[in-house]
């Protein structure tokens, strides 16, 4: 069965739309929430991608060669990546100290 979908036409009266679109930073730069940051030691990384798989924030990113890096703008520092890493290649380092 098929029919015609509605025509989308902008309202002709004053309008504040109750709608949004998916986009990063709907709650700002959530990296600011972090008290500890994950630091990846690539020499220990075996590219298993568990950190990438389990990261709740999509802030572990894959390079072309499948080594991983962190998007610190948004990483909330939960530490799941470090917890699931089978080779202990990720350390959680307190924020606010030396970089």
């Amino acid at each position: 069965m098929s029919g015609t979908a509605a025509v989308v036409e902008k309202p002709k009266t004053y309008w504040v739309a109750p709608i949004s679109y998916p986009a990063p930073a709907s709650s700002g730069k959530t990296g600011l929430w972090r008290t500890e940051r994950p630091v990846i030691h690539l020499e220990k990384c075996v590219k298993c991608l568990y950190c990438w798989l389990y990261c709740p924030e999509d802030t572990i990113l894959r390079r072309e060669d499948d080594y991983v890096y962190v998007d610190y703008d948004y990483c909330k520092g939960c530490g799941i990546c470090a917890a699931v890493c089978p080779t202990n290649a990720i350390d959680m380092v307190p924020e606010g100290g030396e970089s």
């Binding site: 025509v7 989308v8 309008w15 709907s26």
Partner: peptide, 20 residues
Amino acid sequence: SRRQPYVISPETNVVMGNIA
């Protein structure tokens, strides 16, 4: 034929009703 201000579908990617 029907007109409306937006349609929610994979094509439009519209999210209706999250916090304002």
